[in-house]
Amino acid sequence: MSWAVILALGTVITAGIYLALSRDLFRCLIGLALLGNGINLMLFTSGRLNSLSPPIIPAGDTVLGATANPLAQALVLTAIVISFAMLCFSLILAIRIVQENRSDDTIALREAEPHSNDPLKPIIEDEP
């Protein structure tokens, strides 16, 4: 069981890093989302993979039996929600950038930074 999880973790994180290094804007963002999901899986496994029963105290009992670790589940749920929100934001941002810039090549996107082949002194921007 743990070998399958480790394999999945490695594959997802590798794929995520590979895509995130891409010049293509959407691939890069999808890669980051995939990387996030891989790390969420890692967070989930940090609570150990030992029991499949949900962490609920049965009616009448007062102590929790041998169940899955509820803390790791709470953590991973929070992390999933956050990464979901980040993915939503990044997709809207990417669409706006592609609409404005007419290109999804991240190398062509140098609006906020000086170009690497600029002269010794940075060029004066007309618009402040």
Binding site: F84, A85, C88, F89, L91, I92, I95, R96
Partner: peptide
């Protein structure tokens, strides 16, 4: 509000 809002925004922009 948040997820629905951004979904609608995405759909609107395409």
């Amino acid at each position: 509000g948040t997820i629905g809002g951004s979904c609608l925004l995405l759909i609107h922009s395409i």
